[in-house]
Design a binder for these strands. Structure first.
Lengths: 345, 345
DNA sequence: TTGCTTGGTTTAAACGATTAAGCAAATATG
DNA sequence: CATATTTGCTTAATCGTTTAAACCAAGCAA
């Protein structure tokens, strides 16, 4: 990199003192360490003259703290996670932390690799959006006493700090909203995943039906594989439309699913909401631009991200404080895509 | 973090040898360093038993290399940069590097802060999407002999490695395409920015007009401030529509501008492409979902990102090799938004 | 004079690794 | 048989910091 970085040693030589004094002064410990006024000033001056930049590797090695947070998400190129990442980045910076982001692709093995790499790099703690089947990793972190907080998803069977959405409630609201607007045959498209948050969304949706005395039909629920989403989406939607109980409304469990589904709905030439009403989780620019603005469940991104950082940093400072488990509420933003069809009304 | 991480020292104690031997074995230097077969095996076994994880801080401090790349972009929550980031992340990982991403918000001061923080953290090199007025930073890096490669944007007056788009050509193609399709009054919406890539886009657009004997009208060019984009977008589009030479087609210089502009065009109730044809830089899910699929200039993202990493890593290995300056071509993906208006045809 | 503070400074160990150099014993060489 | 060479291992310096502990004057009390 540069020819030779200036170190504390260079300053010491220049000032004709020991490196200890330089360290004391540059860390503002002159009082406690009884450094002379005069020499302190001189040291500071030389430091700025030489444009001294401390070496954080050395600092970290000594202190055992890197002021670094590992953020494990599914995919940084997914707007949802990109948004989260940005918020986490900013909030961490405010607190003097740097963030290292890793994309796991919803894959437990990749997630495990990321974890190892970042542990070796001595990050102080993690914010993790868990992949399916990664319980062992979480347990490992617990056993190793590594600080972390789960974000967006958590495992009900493992006691951890977490910050996530009240997914049950959100999905319930989505269902209820459609029913209130007169829709009866409501489909739900989710990922095929054992992850709790996804199951909760399904549960919320189904409970909304039950509470409104609507019989749930098996073909209304389509759980698509993460890989091959386009293909399975088509099959699922076809089945819902061909059903004896043809759906008149559709809830998408994530933003990605919605994008994929809407493309197909466009292809089919179906009109939203006349032929099919839509509600989706997540928000996206695409929803605004769609010919019929999409009703969506707005997640409190800012709050989710900030709180995750806050909980983690607090934990780093007070390792033995109680666990914090935060559930936040989504807000349903009703727009045209879930309006009572003009034709029927 | 964990109670006590196992170090090389623990292994040495356990095996009853010096730490040097352990280091040699664990780094595969047993041959060169004449370590006994027997003891080598023992060391390796103990290492796995204790689940030894090397401390990269220590390694880095010693070697002066962190195997870390700093990636400075405008905003990770912008899909364009998020995509780039993902590609860079993957490609870097393949080469044993970790990436630290920082968002500058197109702000030279923030970019400077990020640079300092990452330099202090001893990153080996940078991939930088430059902000306006950050020439001094680039010059500083050059003076300090820090390795870096500019991505997406570069400064023609500073000799650096860079990987970016042939923006002139891309914009020229966009203009020509519209003209070929029969449009004559073509507006261009860009950011108000002195950055070369933006100027090149404007230049390309104007040259396309010139080469087709179309007189450029001043109100056809709208340069909006990064802050206050919504507001200025309205004013600009209004002016273009009210003009004596009312625009029949519009080119957006970035994806963000397009999203913002299309929202307003929707508001106005204008039909694309009948009332107004559209071509945009960048790609986005939103473009696919729009009622009239948007014609866009596809950037070779994968190639841009991979090449940037490749150029940087190559530079880290061979610091004194020649500079590499790569210009890539965009591909115009023609879709309905730039078709000859059905009404006129 | 001796001893005790206090102020100002240096020494040296430590963080966890790498690696050149040194040292002994075993083996090879002439 | 004396001397090289090889083999197998240890020592110690180093990277750039922090920080406890030691040191040394000078001032003051007894």
């Amino acid at each position: 990199m540069s020819k030779k970085k200036v170190s504390i040693k260079d300053i010491a030589r220049e000032a004709g003192v020991s490196i200890a004094l330089v360290s004391y002064v540059l860390n503002g410990k002159e009082k406690e360490s009884r450094v002379g006024q005069e020499i302190a000033g001189k040291i500071r001056q030389i430091a700025t003259e030489l444009n001294y930049q401390p070496n954080y590797l050395a600092k970290s090695l000594r202190s055992g703290k890197t002021q670094t947070i590992g953020l494990i998400i599914a995919d940084i190129s997914n707007p949802f996670f990109a948004n989260i990442a940005r918020i986490v980045e900013d909030e961490a910076k405010k607190n003097g932390y740097t963030v290292i982001i890793g994309s796991s692709d919803e894959n437990a093995e990749k997630s495990w690799d990321l974890l190892s790499v970042l542990i070796n790099r001595q990050v102080d703690g993690f914010i993790i959006v868990s992949s399916e089947n990664s319980e062992a990793q979480i347990q490992y972190l617990k056993d190793k006493n590594v600080s972390f907080v789960l974000l967006d998803r958590h495992f009900p069977e493992i006691q951890t700090d977490f910050v996530s959405l009240n997914n049950y409630k959100a999905a319930y609201d989505a269902g209820s909203h459609l029913i209130e607007n007169g829709f009866r045959n409501i489909g739900f498209i989710a990922y095929k995943s054992g992850l709790f948050h996804m199951q909760e969304r399904i549960r919320g949706y189904q409970q909304a039906l039950v509470d409104n005395r609507i019989t749930f039909r098996i073909e209304w629920l389509n759980e698509v594989e993460f890989a091959g989403i386009e293909q399975e989406m088509r099959v699922g939607i076809n089945a819902m439309l061909a059903s004896e109980f043809r759906v008149d409304a559709l809830i998408f469990a994530t933003y990605r699913l919605a994008i994929s589904g809407l493309k197909y709905i466009n292809e089919l030439g179906l009109n939203v909401p006349n032929d099919l009403a839509i509600v989706s989780f997540g928000q996206a620019e695409a929803f605004d631009l769609y010919y019929c603005p999409i009703t969506y469940l707005q997640q409190p991104m800012e709050n989710l991200g900030k709180t995750a950082v806050e909980v983690l940093i607090n934990k780093l400072k007070n390792p033995h404080e109680e666990q914090r488990q935060v559930l936040m509420e989504a807000t349903l933003i009703a727009r045209d895509s879930s309006k009572i069809s003009a034709l029927i009304a």
